[in-house]
């Protein structure tokens, strides 16, 4: 539940930043990318759709993404996504807590974007 709320809060933050944060606005203005964040069992999932500056999102698991960040479980995902350390995702991947499905270059793009708004 906490994780679902976090994913929803992230959507609000992204949407807000897309309107108010000039660096982030610039960063996303030409990108068409679908990022799915979910738990490995698919119970918690949210899709973030970046469409040339416009943001939309929907809860729930789907296969229609460019990249999926798959957390081992909600607890791990919750902790790691709130961790501001630059090596948080790297460590999570190395520890088996995070798997990337699809093109990881999009995951890096997403992570770099998040650095602009966090």
């Amino acid at each position: 539940m906490k994780f679902s709320l976090l994913l929803f809060a992230l959507y609000i933050l992204i949407k807000w930043s897309a309107k108010t944060n000039s660096k982030f606005k610039r960063y996303i203005r030409k990108s068409k990318v679908r990022i799915l964040i979910k738990t490995a069992n698919g119970k918690y999932a949210r899709l973030y759709i970046f469409n040339k500056g416009k943001i939309s999102s929907r809860a729930g698991n789907t296969n229609e993404y460019d990249v999926a960040l798959i957390w081992k479980n909600a607890n791990v995902g919750f902790k790691c996504m709130q961790n501001k350390e630059k090596d948080a995702s790297f460590n999570a991947a190395a520890n088996g807590n995070l798997i990337i499905d699809g093109m990881s270059v999009y995951a890096q793009w997403f992570e770099n974007g998040m650095k602009l708004i966090n």
Partner: peptide
């Protein structure tokens, strides 16, 4: 080892 595990998770697909 950490490096290998991390990039392996990133290139799983």
């Amino acid at each position: 080892e950490k490096v290998r595990k991390a990039y392996t998770a990133f290139i799983r697909t």
